[in-house]
Amino acid sequence: MSDPLVKICGLSTPETLRAAIDAGADFAGFVFFEKSPRHLGLEAARRLGPIAQGRIRKVALTVDADDAALDAIVAALAPDYLQLHGAETPARVKEVKTRYGLPLIKAIGVAARNDVETAGDYEGVADIILFDAKPAPGAAVPGGAGVSFDWDLLRGVTAKDWMLSGGLDSENVAEAIRRSGARAVDVSSGVERERGVKDAEKIAAFVSATRLS
């Protein structure tokens, strides 16, 4: 069985992007959401895109973005994937996929088993389902809060390709993979030294711990 895939999300500097590449991560996530402490402006995206090009898969994360915003992001970053992390309906996901012709990751917030089951609504539309901890009611940001959920809820997930996120770090990722059966993991706050600031050593430790799981 191949090693689990790793996505490092919320990268915002050349140094931490290179750290993710050097550690052997598979995906680099860039957040385009102004309420997030990891928000990346378009100019920064234009600088980081060439560093990642051909070395790691670029993922542009958005939250209920309209077509104009997505047009600007795609032009600036030239992403390999789009990640929709808001309340996008299956119909909206299909619209975005058709418009850009890019593979799509759709985030699903999980607190209970019925949340996991909603992933079925996106089968055949999203290329990858990302199961993340469900945000608290009224939360300003839908992810990246360092909160996990019951990984056992994901046992038996039928989605063809899916990814686990939410509260992961180098200390718990092996257990999370064992309990959930995940073959791909996504981390953001778990590789930070402070909120929104990535740490190169933590990135390397997380990738290493995932490969050894």
Rank of each mutant, 00 (worst) to 15 (best):
R195Y: 06
M163W: 12
S36V: 11
E123F: 12
R55G: 11
A119I: 10
E171P: 00
C9F: 12
R193K: 14
F32V: 12
G54S: 09
R18E: 15
V141K: 12
G146A: 07
D127W: 12
K58T: 05
D132H: 09
A140T: 04
L40D: 06
A119Y: 00
R18L: 15
P142S: 11
D3E: 15
L77H: 08
S189T: 06
V110N: 00
L153A: 06
F206Y: 13
K97L: 07
I73F: 04
R46A: 13
G190A: 02
A69Y: 02
P103V: 10
P90F: 05
G10F: 04
G190R: 09
Y81P: 08
A174V: 02
H39I: 04
G29S: 11
A20S: 12
A176M: 02
E171L: 13
V59R: 01
S2I: 14
L164P: 00
K198D: 12
P90Q: 03
S148Y: 02
R99S: 09
L42D: 05
A65V: 03
V197N: 08
T62I: 10
L40Y: 07
A107Y: 09
R193W: 15
A76L: 07
P79Q: 05
A25Y: 06
E117G: 04
L168S: 03
D3M: 13
S36N: 10
K97V: 06
A126L: 09
A25N: 01
F30W: 06
G166P: 06
L77N: 02
A52D: 04
L42M: 05
V110L: 00
A60Q: 00
L40F: 03
V191G: 03
H39W: 00
K58H: 10
E192S: 05
D186Q: 07
L154K: 04
K35S: 13
A136E: 14
K35Y: 00
E43V: 13
I8C: 07
I108W: 04
E171C: 11
A87C: 13
L70F: 05
I177R: 09
S2Y: 11
V187G: 10
L102Y: 13
G49M: 04
D115G: 13
I73H: 00
G124S: 00
R211L: 03
A133G: 09
L82H: 13
K134I: 04
Y100H: 09
F206H: 03
I128F: 01
V31N: 12
A204W: 08
R46E: 15
V6A: 08
G167A: 05
G181P: 03
G144T: 10
T13I: 03
S180G: 06
L153C: 06
T13G: 09
E123Q: 14
I108R: 10
A19T: 11
T210I: 13
T118P: 03
I203Q: 03
G156P: 07
I108Q: 02
L104T: 15
A65Y: 01
S36Y: 00
